[in-house]
């Protein structure tokens, strides 16, 4: 049975209980600060270190490893391309097999790598330790349209459901003699008979679901309430203030500096 699309891991540390807004603020800081505050690379590395420690503390570090593995492939190619070919390359650093790497390019690649890893880990922290529904609910509470919130949270469950439907559609068409395996042409020809029913039945289902939502007061006027309306804890509030002030200070510092 298809489950909801979610990378959330339930490990019950304080990270899981933290208000999603605090984590969103943390992402914002980790993206902006390495651009605003000198020395950029040191700030970026600090964030990477903090994120790693938090991920370890939240017992979700293992889940990040495949993600890191994948991003290393891209990062290495950045290092190679910038190190060899960046326009401002002047000072040779070292030579392998007749290929000369330049200092300027390597330094630039190093900065890029730090930024990518920094953002990646901050997002991983949010995604791995937050239930998608909690995140959406806290956004709706802060003014996101409930309709848009519904679209986001239902997509996480409906997409896996649609994938399992594709399985039965494939069976139905193969039963009518449709070859779905073989060369590219055969596969392309099989595309319409497979995608047609997927589109049609999701349209039908969407209409039915819209009616079912309406009769449960989805468009009712007035303020909605939330079943799990968790108040922000003192820690949440303190962290929100600390991170917010930090962000403000760095923006001011940056403006004054220039």
């Amino acid at each position: 049975m298809a489950r909801a699309l979610s990378l959330y891991v339930e490990t019950n540390t304080f990270l899981q209980k933290l208000d999603p807004m605090v984590k969103l603020l943390y992402i914002l800081l980790s993206i902006l600060l390495p651009f605003l505050i000198l020395p950029y690379r040191v700030v970026g590395l600090t964030f990477i270190l903090i994120s790693c420690l938090l991920l370890l503390y939240g017992k979700v570090f293992k889940k990040v490893l495949p993600l890191l593995g994948f991003s290393f492939l891209i990062l290495i190619s950045i290092v190679i391309i910038q190190g060899l070919f960046m326009q401002s390359n002047r000072t040779p650093a070292f030579t392998i097999d007749g290929l000369t790497f330049y200092k300027e390019g390597l330094l630039y690649a190093w900065t890029l790598c730090i930024r990518v890893l920094d953002v990646l880990l901050a997002f991983a922290l949010l995604v791995l330790t937050t239930r998608p529904s909690d995140l959406i609910q806290s956004l709706v509470k802060r003014g996101l349209s409930p309709r848009f919130g519904y679209v986001l949270s239902s997509a996480l469950q409906i997409i896996p459901q649609m994938m399992s439907e594709v399985g039965s559609i494939m069976d139905a068409q193969r039963s009518r003699g449709l070859e779905t395996e073989g060369n590219l042409w055969t596969r392309l020809k099989a595309f319409v008979p497979l995608i047609g029913p997927v589109v049609m039945s999701s349209l039908l289902e969407t209409r039915e679901r819209a009616m079912a939502l309406e009769v449960r007061g989805f468009s009712a006027i007035g303020k909605k309430t939330f079943l799990f309306d968790t108040e922000m804890t003192l820690l949440d509030k303190i962290l929100e203030w600390v991170l917010g002030i930090l962000l403000l200070i760095s923006i001011i510092v940056r403006i004054v500096w220039l």
Binding site: Y150, S153, S154, E205, E208, A212, L213
Partner: peptide, 10 residues
């Protein structure tokens, strides 16, 4: 029954 599930709840 399937389309009466909101799909927004876990």
């Amino acid at each position: 029954p399937f389309t009466q599930i909101t799909a927004a709840k876990l």
